Amino acid sequence: MNKIKDFVEWKAFGVCAALGNKLGIATSRIRIFFIYATFLAMGSPLIVYMILAFWMNIKHYITNARRNPLRYL
């Protein structure tokens, strides 16, 4: 069951999981924070979440391109 949970957490942008690993906080607490903050701030934390998801994906592609520059040609 944990393998399925980990797979879903990382494939669904992985923002909360990455923040939890970096900060040493449980992923569920970060998700709950985003949910409550979204309701209280009327959706603006979703913008932050999407920016973080975009940044994580761009960072992933940049690091892969540096390792093998001919990979995407």
Rank of each mutant, 00 (worst) to 15 (best):
M1C: 06
N2M: 07
N2T: 05
K3R: 09
K3F: 02
K3C: 00
I4P: 05
K5L: 11
K5D: 02
D6E: 14
D6M: 08
D6L: 09
F7A: 08
F7I: 04
F7W: 01
V8W: 02
V8I: 10
V8L: 12
E9P: 01
E9A: 12
W10N: 09
K11I: 01
A12E: 00
A12N: 11
A12D: 10
F13H: 08
F13R: 10
G14L: 02
G14S: 03
G14V: 00
G14I: 00
V15H: 01
V15A: 07
C16K: 05
C16E: 12
C16D: 12
A18F: 09
A18I: 08
L19M: 11
L19D: 04
G20H: 00
G20E: 04
N21A: 13
G24L: 05
G24M: 01
I25V: 01
I25H: 02
I25M: 05
I25T: 01
A26Q: 12
T27P: 06
T27A: 12
R29C: 03
R29P: 00
I30G: 09
I30E: 05
I30N: 07
I30R: 06
I30D: 07
R31Y: 10
R31E: 15
I32H: 15
I32R: 15
I32W: 11
I32Y: 14
F33C: 15
F34I: 11
F34T: 09
F34Y: 15
F34W: 12
I35Q: 14
I35Y: 15
I35H: 14
I35D: 07
Y36N: 11
Y36Q: 06
Y36E: 03
F39L: 13
L40M: 12
L40N: 00
A41S: 15
M42Y: 03
G43H: 06
S44G: 09
S44P: 04
S44W: 03
P45S: 10
P45E: 07
P45Q: 08
L46M: 15
L46I: 10
I47F: 13
V48W: 05
Y49G: 07
Y49H: 13
Y49P: 09
I51H: 04
L52Y: 05
L52T: 02
L52W: 02
A53G: 13
A53V: 02
A53P: 10
A53D: 06
A53R: 07
F54A: 13
F54N: 08
F54D: 04
F54G: 15
W55L: 13
W55Q: 07
M56F: 08
N57W: 06
N57Q: 14
I58T: 10
H60F: 11
H60P: 00
H60G: 06
H60T: 06
H60K: 13
H60N: 11
Y61K: 14
Y61P: 00
T63P: 08
T63E: 13
T63C: 13
N64D: 11
N64V: 07
A65R: 12
A65F: 01
R66S: 09
R66L: 07
R66C: 12
R66M: 06
R67M: 06
R67Q: 12
N68R: 13
N68V: 04
P69N: 08
L70M: 06
R71G: 02
R71F: 01
L73N: 10
L73W: 02
